[in-house]
Simulated assay, not measured.
Amino acid sequence: MGKSRLWAGLIVAALGLASPAAAAQCGNTSAGFDAWKGDFARTAKRAGVKGAGLTALAQARYATRTIAADRNQKSFRYSLEKFMEIRGANTIVAQGRRHKARNAAFYAALEQKYGVPSGVLIAIHGMETAFGNYMGDSNVVSAIVTLTYDCRRSAFFEPHAIGALKLVDQGAITGTTKGAKHGELGHTQFLPGNALQFGVDWDRNGRVDFYNFQDALASTAHFLRKKGWKPGKGYQQGQPNFKVLKEWNAATVYQQSLALMGARIDN
């Protein structure tokens, strides 16, 4: 090292002008989680997250069960027949038909506004939460923040973590709201970033509530329409709207199941 560079380095150190510390790194254990949260709080603040959201972030805990679930998603590797059997397709279809009959006017209004047939929405509702009977027991903020910290898919989950914190700011959820192990929330298990972007206040009470059946299903229809759903077009494999189902869930076997169950519910 030349003298000029050596002296410059000594001066910088003496004056406390050393370059900023590197951003906290992702991790595959809980060891660095708290340090990472401190760094992510700055990212969240720059993205527009305010006091309530930042408090929820500070209180988030490393979600061990979420990481275990993320490493063990076996069902999507089953055959279509096995997947539908495990998910209880026949039960979803039978219950879905009754659900549709009881809420016919609501689903007709959704289809008129968004162009998405009721069978698809009902199949999603049945597949995700057994029609709202089980919406998860994991802390939404902790789960989604943990997945953002985890090195496996940090970039994918970061906008959803920001979304969750903004939902807290808006009062749509709190820091203690429960959802699925990957941070999905409500009747149809929206990822928080999608919930923030596509949420619909169907009952017009001034608040988008994904734990309210009507708001959740309207938000789902809105999501599919914005992702390219073509009203009046088919959604079976090879038809124009089948590819839109991928926007809801990336697993082919899941998309196939939705298409088949949706058609049975509507017929």
Score class of each variant (00 low, 15 high):
Arg152Phe: 08
Gln170Asn: 13
Ala68Asp: 07
Ile92Gln: 01
Ser79Phe: 03
Ala172Cys: 08
Arg77Met: 08
Lys37Leu: 03
Leu57Cys: 04
Gly179Asn: 06
Lys37Thr: 03
Ala195Thr: 07
Lys37Arg: 13
Ile265Cys: 02
Gly183Phe: 06
Asp203His: 15
Arg204Asp: 11
Lys227Asp: 09
Ser19Asp: 15
Met1Phe: 06
Ala221Asp: 01
Lys178Met: 10
Ser138Pro: 02
His222Glu: 09
Val49Gly: 12
Gly228Cys: 04
Gln239Trp: 04
Gly186Lys: 00
Leu147Trp: 00
Arg264Leu: 07
Gln170Glu: 15
Ile67Val: 13
Leu80Pro: 11
Ser4Thr: 08
Arg65Gly: 14
Tyr211Asn: 14
Arg71Leu: 12
His125Glu: 10
Gln255Leu: 06
Ala130Leu: 12
Val168Cys: 05
Ala31Pro: 07
Thr91Leu: 09
Thr66Glu: 00
Pro117Asp: 04
Ala218Trp: 06
Asn241Tyr: 06
Thr91Gly: 12
Leu217Gly: 00
Ala216Met: 09
Gly199Lys: 11
Leu110Asn: 12
Thr146Val: 09
Val200Gly: 05
Arg207Phe: 08
Glu158Trp: 02
Gly199Glu: 15
Gly96Phe: 01
Val140Tyr: 10
Lys230Tyr: 01
Cys151Gln: 12
Pro192Trp: 00
Ala130Phe: 14
Ala13Pro: 04
Ala47Phe: 06
Asn90Cys: 02
Arg152Cys: 05
Ala221Pro: 01
Val93Cys: 02
Asp169Asn: 11
Arg152Asn: 12
Gly183Ala: 07
Ala105Glu: 07
Lys243Tyr: 13
Arg207Ala: 13
Ala8Gly: 07
Leu217Gln: 06
Pro192Glu: 05
Ala31Gln: 13
Glu85Gly: 08
Ala123Met: 08
Val141Tyr: 02
Asp137Leu: 13
Gln170Ser: 09
Pro231Val: 07
Phe157His: 02
Ala14His: 02
Asn133Tyr: 07
Thr174Met: 10
Ala263Gln: 15
Met127Phe: 14
Ile144Phe: 13
Gly48Lys: 14
Ala31Met: 06
Gln112Gly: 01
Ala22Met: 10
Gly175Val: 00
Ala31Tyr: 13
Arg5Cys: 00
